[in-house]
């Protein structure tokens, strides 16, 4: 299409519009319908998934705690369903938040490095490497996590425990195998780093050159240019990227399953074994041997993960919306 860059273009569409206006309008309408239809399809799919989840989770949520305690192997006696899911929700959030706290600053640094600091050729190669890392399956992260990473981290965890044992996170007895929440958080951080980096980088690269040049022309240093032009423009994108990362960290199954030595407590001791468990790993761990009401209970915990993700996403949307006036394009 030549409309954007060659002088005769303005004439052509006008003439065409006159000759085939109805068709054009028809196309426009059809296109709109298709796009809207795709949106509706999403709603239908999700309605189906939600229906499936609720129908399968319902028996567990309405069952008496005695019935649940009998059918579900890990269900503690005399507790409500909330008390059963509670520690799992806690563990899931703890893992995801720790991972996000580690990954986001580093990922933003890497994204900025690739978009604004590294030499151009190097930047391309690095961008490529990061994309590649996003594709490593979580099973491999799991394998790497306990064969390579855990032995390296074990002395570091002991050191942290010795010197910073007064800090709640590093308290407790250090596990000799390092199969703990701390190691899981590091693995999850490594896992979501490429996702956050890739999206942030793409967004940073889209910063209008004019904004950047204007900042530089006003005498801004490189960091000031980044701070005043690039970061505000990329803010909504970075939050979206972090949310994508968080989504993956919240729902990550295999890596957690293979590394973590699980427990069912509200515990901040991330260096001690058998303290926390995440929902996704819990489902995968117990699903193979579950039957009857236990399956319903597992799916109900899946529903809880759903709700958490939903809440996190809504919070992120709210933040993005409030800062919209600072964000870039529209």
């Amino acid at each position: 299409m030549t409309t954007t860059d060659s002088p005769p273009a303005p004439v052509a569409p006008v003439r065409r519009r006159r000759s085939s206006g109805d068709t054009e309008r028809g196309f426009s309408r059809t296109f709109r319908w298709i796009a809207t239809g795709a949106g509706a399809l999403i709603l239908a799919t999700l309605a189906a998934v939600a229906l499936f989840l609720i129908v399968r989770a319902w028996p567990a949520m309405t069952a008496s705690s005695e019935a649940l305690a009998e059918a579900v192997p890990r269900y503690p006696d005399d507790t409500s369903f909330i008390a059963y899911v509670g520690p799992l929700i806690f563990g899931t959030l703890l893992a995801a938040v720790l991972a996000l706290l580690i990954a986001t600053p580093v990922a933003m640094g890497v994204a900025l490095f690739i978009s604004h600091y590294a030499p151009r050729r190097l930047a391309q190669a690095l961008g490529y490497l990061v994309d590649l890392l996003a594709a490593i399956p979580s099973v491999v992260y799991g394998l790497w996590g306990f064969t390579v990473l855990a032995p390296v981290l074990a002395p570091l965890w002991t050191w942290l425990n010795n010197w910073f044992g007064w800090f709640p996170l590093f308290a407790g007895d250090v596990s000799p195998t390092a199969r703990t929440m701390a190691t899981v958080a590091v693995v999850l951080a490594v896992m979501i780093l490429p996702i956050i980096t890739a999206v942030s980088r793409e967004v940073f690269l889209q910063t209008p050159k004019l904004h950047e040049e204007a900042a530089l022309a006003l005498g801004a240093t490189r960091w000031e240019m980044v701070r005043t032009a690039v970061l505000p423009f990329g803010q909504s994108g970075v939050i979206s990227a972090a949310m994508l990362g968080l989504g993956r960290a919240l729902g990550e199954t295999m890596a957690v399953l293979m590394i973590l030595s699980p427990g069912f407590l509200y515990s901040f001791k991330i260096l001690q074994a058998a303290q926390q468990q995440t929902i996704a790993a819990y489902i995968a761990l117990d699903f193979p041997e579950a039957s009857g009401l236990a399956v319903n209970a597992l799916i109900a915990t899946g529903l809880a993960l759903f709700v958490i993700t939903l809440a996190v996403n809504m919070a992120a949307r709210a933040i993005v919306a409030r800062r919209k006036e600072f964000s870039g394009a529209n």
């Binding site: 306990f146 030595s261 427990g263």
Partner: peptide, 23 residues
Amino acid sequence: IKGQESAQGTSGVVSAAQAGEGT
């Protein structure tokens, strides 16, 4: 029993046992 180390699957417990001394 709660509070002890654990791992998933036979290969999991074997590699966990190999990773720590006195397991």
